[in-house]
Design a protein around this nucleic acid. Structure first.
Length: 320
DNA sequence: TCTGGTACGCTCTACGACAC
DNA sequence: GTGTCGTAGAGCGTACCAGA
C-alpha cells in the first residue's frame, strides 16, 4: 500500500536538508513531529531510511532510492501548483474549444494565433464537428466551451440544451447561392418558385434540412422533390461545388465572402429578408469560467470585430 | 443529527549525546 | 556549561466512523 503522502513529503525535506530540524523549519512543524513521522515511515516501509549519528543523520541506500522515486513527483507537483497560482494572475494552460468545421477553420485559428502572440503560455485544443458531438463533449468536460451553429434551431431537438448557458455571438446571413456563370445561364433574374424548382441543388447532408428550410422561409411552403446534383457532409464542399457551377446551395454568406466580393458567386434573393443563423457560445450552465477563458472570450469578440473584410457578411452580438 | 470511541498528528517537555 | 541535534512519552485537538 502507498505510504501516507504527508510522510513522503516529510521524508523529501529531511533527505534534501539532511536534517530533521531543518525539515521541521521548512514544513513549519516541530522537530519532534518530523522525527516521529520519519520513524513511522520507516516502520511502514520496514526499512531504515537514515542512520542517526551525533548532530545529524546519514541516508541509507534505501533512502537514496526512495528519494529518487519521490523527487520528480514532488517537484512536478510543486511546479504545477505554482502554475495554478500563476493562472489566477494571467492566462495560462490549455484551452479546449469546440467549433463548427468551417467557422473553426476560417476564424478560430486566426483568433488562436493572435491570442498566443499576447499569451504564449496558453495552448489550444480545437475540436471541429457537429453540434451534437460538441455539446456532448462539453457535457462530459472534454471541452471548456464550444461555438455551436444552431442552424434552423426550431427544427432541432433543443431539450438537451437545458444543461448549458447559451450566449449568441454572431448572426450570420444564410443565402441560396450559385456561381455567377450558372446564374446567367440558368436563372437570368427569374426567382419564382416555379422556375427555381427546375434547377440543380447541392444538398448539405441527405436530409436536405437547410435547403428545405430556405424554401419554407422564402415561399412559406415545403419544397417538393428537388433535383439534387450533389450531396455532401460539409459546407466547404457545397461552396466548392458552387464554384464548379454544379448548382445552387444554401451557405452562410461570410464563408464565401471572397467569391461574392469578386462577383464569382451570386445570391438568389426573394422579397423576403435573408435567413439569419446564430452561432452561439455554449458552456455548462453552472461553470465558473477561468481567467484564461474570460480573457480569451474578450479577445475573441475584439478579434471578430476587427475582421473588416467580413463586417458586411455577419453581425457581431454585443458582448455581455 | 448527535454522541461516544478510536486513531492520528501535533506540541510540549524531558532527556541523552557530543562539540565547542 | 552551553548550544545543537536527535529520541521518547504525555497530553491535546481533530477527523472519522459506527450506532442510537
Amino acid at each position: 500500500m502507498l505510504p501516507d503522502f504527508n510522510r513522503l513529503k516529510l521524508f523529501y525535506h529531511v533527505y534534501a536538508r539532511r536534517s530533521v530540524a531543518g525539515a521541521a523549519r521548512d514544513l513549519h512543524v516541530t522537530q519532534s513531529a518530523v522525527s516521529q513521522g520519519l520513524a513511522k515511515l520507516e516502520e511502514e516501509l520496514e526499512t531504515p531510511l537514515f542512520t542517526r549519528v551525533h548532530k545529524g543523520i546519514v541516508p541509507t541506500p534505501a533512502a537514496e532510492s526512495l528519494f529518487n522515486m519521490v523527487k520528480p513527483f514532488v517537484e512536478e507537483l510543486e511546479s504545477e501548483l505554482r502554475s495554478f497560482a500563476a493562472s489566477k494572475k494571467q492566462p495560462w494552460g490549455v484551452l479546449r474549444v469546440g467549433s463548427p468545421r468551417m467557422f473553426g477553420k476560417i476564424y478560430m485559428l486566426r483568433v488562436f494565433a493572435s491570442f498566443r502572440e499576447k499569451y504564449p503560455e496558453v495552448s489550444f485544443v480545437l475540436e471541429l464537428g457537429g453540434q451534437e458531438k460538441l455539446l456532448n463533449m462539453v457535457r462530459a468536460g472534454d471541452l471548456d466551451f464550444t461555438f455551436s451553429d444552431i442552424f434552423f434551431a426550431e427544427k432541432a431537438d433543443l431539450s438537451g440544451l437545458r444543461d448549458f448557458a447559451v450566449e449568441p455571438v454572431i448572426e450570420e446571413e444564410v443565402i441560396l447561392a450559385c456561381s455567377t456563370k450558372y446564374y446567367e445561364e440558368r436563372i437570368r433574374g427569374d426567382h419564382s418558385l416555379k422556375h427555381l424548382l427546375t434547377l440543380d441543388y447541392l444538398a448539405f447532408r441527405p436530409d436536405q434540412l437547410i435547403l428545405r428550410g430556405w424554401f419554407k422561409h422564402h415561399f412559406k411552403r415545403q419544397a417538393p422533390r428537388l433535383n439534387i446534383s450533389l450531396t455532401v457532409d460539409n459546407i466547404q464542399a457545397v461552396i466548392a461545388a458552387i464554384d464548379e457551377h454544379m448548382g445552387l446551395g444554401v451557405i452562410a454568406s461570410h464563408l464565401a465572402w471572397e467569391q461574392i466580393s469578386r462577383g464569382d458567386i451570386t445570391a438568389v434573393h426573394t422579397n423576403k429578408p435573408p435567413i439569419s443563423n446564430t452561432i452561439s457560445l455554449v458552456q455548462l450552465a453552472n461553470k465558473v469560467p477561468s481567467l484564461t477563458e474570460k480573457v480569451f472570450l474578450r479577445h475573441f469578440h475584439k478579434s471578430m470585430a476587427a475582421m473588416e473584410m467580413h463586417k458586411d457578411f455577419f453581425k457581431l452580438w454585443p458582448q455581455p
